[in-house]
Simulated scan of single mutants.
Amino acid sequence: MFYWFLKWVAIGPLLRIVFRPQVEGGDHVPDEGPAILASNHLSYADWLFMPLTLSRRVTFVAKAEYFTGTGVKGWLQKTFFSGSGQVPIDRTGADAAAGALLSAKRVLGEGGLFGIYPEGTRSHDGRLYRGKTGVARLALETGVPVIPVAVVGTDVVAPPGKKFGSFTRPVVRFGRPLDFSRYEGLENDRYILRSITDEIMYEIMRLSEQEYVDMYATRAKEESKRADAAAAEAAAEQKKAS
């Protein structure tokens, strides 16, 4: 399988030798059976380092466009994403969020490990943002435990907006599995979904030691961009006046 070649023969040994990632709490991940790995998201490198610390394959969802390209480039792209543990979002009769849920349920139904970033996007400033409730719905609809994960240092290796950063040893911390079976049958209760998601985010915050912001990351990014634009406009006006 190309995934194992990619992990152990190609990229894996190089990342291990150069960055020597550390793992804590790896025994919280079961040797077999389904589980949801809910992680913080500091860098595009997160999906490389977190699975590297485990012997089992971790599957993430990716945009369907990565799997439908044509020609040599399309084949290479499809082979890479398929081989590195990613599956396309299943948009059959569904939007992106519902399609991701369908893909995730299929992976878990086959007894696999499914990786998810509850924040929905990378943090632009290193802080931990409010989680979206899709992770809670997935946990309730599948009855699968959620393992909180903190990946630390990847934003130094690959900072947001840059392809490369500087050297550090990333740390991957796995928390104790969270069981939400007490809420069985309540997957349509938005208050329950929010409560579960907040519990997951609290454990991720505890593991990562990040500052928590009770705001969605997408909104925070938009506000940051507006503030930067306003500051740039003010500086330009001040320069004209001087």
Rank of each mutant, 00 (worst) to 15 (best):
E211L: 09
A217E: 03
R182S: 15
P34A: 11
V144K: 02
I147A: 02
F81W: 11
V149S: 04
W8A: 09
R173N: 05
T154A: 11
I116A: 05
V156I: 15
L76T: 06
A232M: 10
V23A: 15
T142W: 01
V23P: 06
L42A: 14
V146E: 00
G126V: 09
D189T: 01
L76F: 11
G153I: 03
D189W: 04
P30K: 10
V72S: 08
T168I: 08
G111C: 14
V172E: 00
T68N: 14
I116V: 15
V157K: 01
S224F: 02
A38L: 08
R194W: 03
E222R: 08
G93R: 09
R219A: 10
M1W: 01
P159C: 13
T59W: 03
T218Q: 10
R182L: 12
G12I: 01
I196A: 04
G131S: 08
V172W: 01
P145N: 11
E223H: 03
K162V: 04
A232Q: 13
W75S: 13
F5C: 13
R182P: 03
D95H: 09
T70E: 14
R106H: 14
F164W: 12
S43M: 07
A96V: 13
L37K: 01
T68L: 12
S195Q: 14
E233Q: 11
D228M: 12
G115F: 03
V172S: 03
Y129C: 05
A229G: 06
G185K: 11
Y202N: 06
R20C: 13
G99A: 13
D198K: 07
A227D: 11
K105F: 03
F80H: 05
T68F: 06
V58D: 05
F80E: 07
L138S: 00
G26H: 10
K163V: 06
L102N: 14
P30T: 10
N188G: 15
A236Q: 11
V152H: 03
N188M: 07
E110S: 14
P177C: 06
F60K: 00
S103E: 07
P177H: 05
E209W: 00
R57I: 08
G175E: 08
G131Q: 01
A98S: 14
V171N: 01
S39I: 03
K225M: 12
F5H: 07
W47T: 14
T79E: 07
A241K: 13
D189K: 04
I11A: 15
G85E: 03
P51T: 07
A62H: 06
I11D: 02
L193C: 07
F114D: 01
R137C: 00
G185N: 11
E199D: 12
R122Q: 14
E110D: 15
Y66A: 04
A217T: 01
T218H: 09
V9Y: 04
G69D: 12
S103L: 08
I192M: 10
W4K: 13
Q86F: 08
P88F: 04
R122D: 05
E187Y: 09
F2A: 08
V23R: 08
S166F: 05
G109P: 02
K239R: 15
Y44K: 02
F174T: 03
I11K: 00
T218M: 06
F19S: 05
R57C: 09
A229P: 02
R190P: 03
V23T: 15
L15C: 13
K7T: 02
P170E: 05
P13W: 05
S242Q: 12
I192L: 10
G12W: 02
L6T: 01
L207A: 07
